[in-house]
């Protein structure tokens, strides 16, 4: 009996907090009018917003993947001064408000910032343009690959790498043939999570982009824009697409998780 009541409470909580709101998605789009939602989705500015979002992800994800693997290798396999600090800085974006991230970049590259004047002189637009948005996206999604790879590296240990060395493999050969294949599922999982974070980022990008319609507006900023213009159908329509991506990502995540332990 007790078991059932525990289950009931747990699932009830999930229903109220998670599933309830989620179920609203289709219903609201339907209630606000599918036609209106479609109009909003096919608006060139919306298309552009999705394009900007994808561009950001396309730049940030590969960079963070390489960075994450390098950092994880450094943290697990090497001893060097300042390792604790590196560890802390890699985790910081997880605990930090994206608004603080956005503001920091804004202050660094703004008119009176350390780097702002230099870039202005050389005619490079950083703020309210793609470069600062890329930096913001990279910042908030830095930790994910490293956090997935670090425990996997610890678990596999370095014996296989040593074995490869005694068999004549160079450091580079060992990385490609032994280390990378052993951590591949962790890397892929990290990439999936990083991608999700990049697509969904709002706070940091909101500050540095200036949300200029048709130029620096991302998909999530577009959701807010439509909402504030009282075009709820549009807002829910774009949300539906974003949620569809999220659910796709989620399916990938659950598919990848159990396979880690197997091979």
């Amino acid at each position: 009996m007790r078991r059932y009541s525990v289950r009931f409470v747990a699932l009830g909580y999930l229903l109220v907090v998670l599933l309830g709101p989620l179920s609203m998605l289709f219903w609201r789009v339907y209630a606000e009018g599918v036609g209106k939602a479609w109009t909003a989705l096919t608006d060139p500015d919306t298309g552009h917003a999705f394009k900007v979002t994808l561009e950001l992800a396309a730049i940030a994800v590969p960079l963070n993947t390489i960075f994450g693997i390098v950092v994880a290798l450094a943290i697990v396999r090497r001893r060097f001064p300042g390792k604790g600090l590196l560890n802390a800085f890699v985790d910081l974006p997880l605990a930090l408000s994206p608004v603080v991230v956005g503001l920091s970049l804004y202050l660094l590259y703004g008119r009176t910032g350390w780097f702002g004047p230099w870039f202005t002189q050389h005619g490079v637009q950083v703020l309210f343009a793609l470069p600062s948005m890329v930096l913001a996206t990279i910042f908030v999604s830095v930790p994910f690959v490293a956090r997935e790879v670090v425990p996997t590296l610890r678990e596999i240990g370095d014996e296989q790498e040593q074995a490869a060395h005694t068999l004549g493999a160079s450091g580079w050969q060992t990385f490609w043939r032994i280390t990378l294949p052993s951590i591949r599922w962790a890397v892929i999982y990290g990439v999936v999570v990083t991608t999700a974070r990049c697509l969904g980022e709002y706070g940091a990008v909101a500050i540095v982009s200036g949300s200029i319609q048709g130029k620096t507006e991302t998909a999530t900023l577009r959701v807010q824009e439509e909402f504030e213009n009282l075009n709820l159908a549009g807002s829910y329509g774009i949300s539906l697409v974003l949620a569809a991506i999220a659910i796709f990502v989620l399916v990938l995540m659950t598919r990848l998780r159990p396979r880690e332990g197997v091979s």
């Binding site: 596999i156 014996e159 296989q160 040593q162 074995a163 490869a164 005694t166 068999l167 004549g168 493999a169 050969q173 043939r177 032994i178 294949p181 052993s182 091979s263």
Partner: peptide, 25 residues
């Protein structure tokens, strides 16, 4: 040639690929 106590088998490779590793390198 070094043989480890806990084998240090390359888990993502078949027996054949494990043995061939040093030769392919």
């Amino acid at each position: 040639g070094f043989v480890f106590q806990h084998y240090a088998a390359f888990k993502h490779m078949t027996v054949r690929d494990n043995i061939a590793f040093g030769l392919k390198i």
